[in-house]
Design a protein around this nucleic acid. Structure first.
Lengths: 225, 225
DNA sequence: ATATCACAGATCGTATACGATCGGTGATGG
DNA sequence: CCATCACCGATCGTATACGATCTGTGATAT
């Protein structure tokens, strides 16, 4: 009875399959998700596919219109703003709530990750940088004792995944600031800072990324009218 | 073309039907939601019922287990704590984000509601009190320009609805404090206070209710061992 | 040329059907 | 008498089927 064959439901199968295709860019924002197509591709019926799509809808990765169908969520600038704002809120809280449960070993691990991020900057590896960024923050918020808040954080990151590498590639120079701010957060955690201080710093870290993005967009817009 | 007959989907029908039964207490926490039963009661097939249940699951009103079925979510003390903590977070933020868009008329309206709440205290009408409490806070957060955060607030309140009248009935005396704190929040809004100040005050308002509840439980537990 | 309408193909929403899985009950053995 | 196992009914998960609805295209009228 060592390893039982885990029978995952077809719904689960469709869910992860679609999510993967959205994440890796096969299905770009706006792409129409046709039930019959996906069902045939996965060799399942439309029912579980439909269910999977509605799950993705509830996570905001997909939009759904009655009697029309589903498509990969469009992430315009406003949508990005909403997501980042929400994530700054819940991630800040999750980090603060995690703080009391974070060990010195965790902080070491985070610091190692942050150093790898610096290397990515030097070798210009935006994709790996983004991956490491998630790993870094995961160390900081995964100990959050409130599963609801933790779930919201995961959903927020899930949405961002649709705009892969956005942090890094869209606003040059921001990544460099980012790793410095990471160190700042770590030192707050090390010195056992006040919960609110940690929350606000973690929140500000993300807010600054958002602001940098908006500024950058604004500037680009002025340069090329 | 004045009023078209709005054809709501059977899924929508099942969704609201079940949600209502959960809210009004017909389906108490732990009640097993059997697909076939509900389908027959509504004279629809199991497919839309299933979809409705999964929607409710994603809102946390229902728990679902593969190959076993669904039941109305159990709200033990821990679950209540998680929900209140999350709601304090998102509601605080929503209130702060709404602040710049709140008019003097809105504040008047909120104050009127708060006065009605005081009357409820005198006539001991907990049910109406709870209703008004939602109305009061709605005035404060409904102008939130971030729809994601607003949605999270609605979901949080939705979860609380399962434990109706909890604030009022479970912890005596707290309701009286509550209306005073409402006035405090209103005055912050009137004087155009700092966004963070508003957020933290709105957050603390809810946190205090949670703390009062936990204290009260603790005390009851000691009295009756 | 533009607007309106009707039709056709594609796709969705839901009913029905059936095999798969779970939980409980009674028989069997210790 | 208690533990284990086999069976059965209840319920779930998913395939298939079909009517309902939407979107786009081409014909017609202004």
């Amino acid at each position: 009875m060592a390893s039982e064959t885990v029978v995952q439901s077809k719904t689960q199968l469709a869910y992860t399959w679609i999510k993967e295709r959205i994440s890796d860019g096969t299905y770009t924002p706006g792409y129409r998700l046709v039930l019959g197509q996906i069902a045939k591709a996965l060799d399942v019926s439309v029912v579980p596919v439909r269910e999977a799509i509605r799950l993705l809808e509830s996570e905001g990765l997909v939009t759904f219109e009655h009697n029309v169908g589903a498509q990969v969520a469009m992430h315009d600038e406003t949508e990005y703003l909403y997501t980042m704002q929400t994530l700054s809120l819940v991630e800040g809280a999750a980090t603060a709530l995690s703080a009391p449960h974070i060990s010195a070993a965790d902080i070491d691990r985070a610091r190692t990750i942050n150093e790898q991020m610096i290397e990515c900057l030097q070798h210009f590896d935006p994709h790996r940088f983004t991956e490491l960024n998630l790993e870094f923050h995961s160390v900081l918020f995964e100990n959050c004792p409130n599963p609801h808040i933790l779930d919201l954080v995961h959903r927020g990151w899930g949405r961002l995944t649709v705009l892969r590498d956005s942090t890094f590639s869209f606003v040059p120079g921001r990544a460099r600031e980012s790793v410095l701010e990471h160190e700042q957060i770590l030192s707050l955690l090390e010195q056992g800072a006040d919960s609110l201080a940690i929350e606000l710093e973690a929140r500000a870290h993300r807010t600054r990324t958002l602001d940098a993005f908006l500024d950058y967009q604004e500037r680009r817009h002025h340069e090329v009218p």
